[in-house]
């Protein structure tokens, strides 16, 4: 770094494109949104900068708070599910024989190759009343019915009733878990891969079983990856609006949908901007909590 600083022109030349990009496409829009959030809409739909905090006030009505609450619990459920499924997966890949690791990692990252919308739409085909899952259930039901009929119990299982799997919170959660699982697995894998196997052997050697070794050694030592994965999944799930839009029921609106609505159908940009900034602050709050946890655990934590 020192030598870079000495070569000032080169340093600035390399720094410029990135900085410019961020200023033009990130910082300036953010400032614009901040300005919108303290503006009002005139009668002709024009935006007037009035430095009002009314838009923020509007966010604190019961309907919006309800939507915010729902967003938080859906994001939490998604994060928890990703954690429960992602940890064994990451552990499995990290401990797989060397030639297997890269293909397995590629499989985890494979969904990224498909468009987000298509991945979300695919769940409609799986979950709808005449979808793949219900078709499979119906087929099983028919086979069961036939088997019972052969044993002399015609119609023992009753008529097949397809499950209502689509257009509810669960459909949203399932799709969000599917979309965000790699964001949990990859950071976890990164720390587990670097985990010194001697620590695990030491734990076993000292008489701890596999359960205790997992609890007392593997989990604490993978905290950096665990925290990164959790924060990533939570923030991404919180801001997602495609899944709720396509798969959610009439009451499945998430904060992302509400914001999208303000910039779209409702064309109430000031309110949408205020909501966006509130979501941003909430996100910062989580990042701050994570950093706090990091500092408390001391210097040993890598990254």
């Amino acid at each position: 770094m020192e030598t870079w600083r000495k070569r000032r022109t080169l340093f600035l030349a390399l720094l410029a494109p990135g900085t410019l990009w961020l200023v033009v496409f990130f910082t300036l829009p953010l400032v614009l949104i901040a300005l919108y959030s303290v503006s009002e809409q005139g009668d002709a739909g024009e935006t007037i900068l009035t430095l009002t905090f009314e838009n923020y006030g509007r966010a604190f009505d019961w309907v919006t708070l309800g939507i915010l609450w729902k967003s938080f619990w859906i994001a939490s459920a998604v994060t928890a599910a990703c954690l429960v499924m992602g940890f064994p997966l990451a552990l499995g890949i990290a401990f797989a024989p060397r030639p297997w690791k890269t293909p397995l990692l590629a499989l985890v990252a494979l969904p990224f190759w498909t468009n987000l919308l298509i991945r979300t739409y695919a769940w409609i085909a799986v979950l709808r009343t005449k979808g793949h899952l219900n078709n499979a259930l119906e087929w099983t039901h028919a086979k069961g019915q036939a088997a019972f009929a052969a044993l002399g119990w015609p119609d023992a299982l009753g008529p097949f009733v397809p499950l209502e799997l689509l257009y509810n919170d669960w459909a949203v959660i399932i799709a969000l878990v599917h979309i965000h699982l790699p964001f949990m697995v990859l950071p976890l894998y990164a720390v587990l891969e670097k985990l010194d196997r001697a620590h695990l052997e030491a734990s076993l050697d000292l008489g701890a079983g596999h359960g205790r070794t997992f609890r007392s050694v593997i989990v604490p030592l993978s905290m950096p990856g665990l925290a990164t994965g959790t924060v990533l999944v939570f923030i991404l799930a919180l801001g997602n609006f495609v899944a709720a839009d396509l798969l959610g029921g009439s009451d499945s609106m998430m904060i992302g949908n509400l914001i999208a609505q303000q910039f779209g159908a409702s064309s109430d940009w000031p309110y949408g901007s205020a909501l966006s900034l509130l979501l941003l602050y909430a996100t910062f709050l989580f990042l701050w909590l994570r950093a706090l946890g990091h500092r408390r655990r001391g210097e040993w934590a890598p990254a």
């Binding site: 030491a202 050694v217 030592l221 905290m223 001391g298």
Partner: peptide, 10 residues
């Protein structure tokens, strides 16, 4: 006693 000692850093 491991060569790297393998003390638990946490």
């Amino acid at each position: 006693v491991f060569q790297s000692y393998a003390l638990f850093p946490h």
